[in-house]
Amino acid sequence: MEKLISKKDLLEAANISYGQLYRWKRKNLIPENWFIRKSTFTGQETFFPKEEILQRIEKIKNLKDDLSLDELADMFSPSPTITSLSADELVKRNIVSSTAIEMYNTHHGNTATFSFDQLLTLYLLDTLLQTGEMNRSEGMELLHFLQQHANEITGQESELIFIRKMGVSFFILTPEPAKLLVESQTKIIAHYKLNKYIEELKLKLS
């Protein structure tokens, strides 16, 4: 079970007011499904997933001086922003490694510019490769897998899970939040919230 934080404790911990919290909710900076209502002895109380909300508020507080609330909402939303970048620029700006682009090109054929969806695929591939937990042939499988399910990734809050048992690896894509139980010999190598990566990518691009 995820750790929850009550609204009262959250306001205290993050040093914000009710007004700010409600405003951010209105501006879609905090997703609706993070508001978890429960009855307590003092009546109805609202709880939030602790880690996520604190991280999100920290980000909002850091960025709100540079970006407008609407721009922030764009960044946090799971739907893609319209951008396309060339392969050269991606490497130059250090967004993904040239190895990842090379692998992508082997799989998809030569691609000159990348749309946001393609960038996300590339970014996930690169991140997994960088961890050293995934080998190249698994990377190719990931590319194939993400291509097949491209529609399910964008505009939704989903999670990518990568597991391995005795050398055989699997990818799983599921709507958030996934509670996955695996047998003891199985290793969960990666459990990625795609939303987080979309945010990171948007930050790097902007």
Binding site: K7, Y18, G19
Partner: peptide, 21 residues
């Protein structure tokens, strides 16, 4: 049921919880 705000000023209101600055 619940009224929460920074500045809250109420008349003739029935509520279970009111929270604010």
């Amino acid at each position: 049921e619940v009224i929460e705000g920074d500045h809250v000023s109420l008349e003739y209101t029935h509520a279970k919880v009111v929270r604010g600055n």
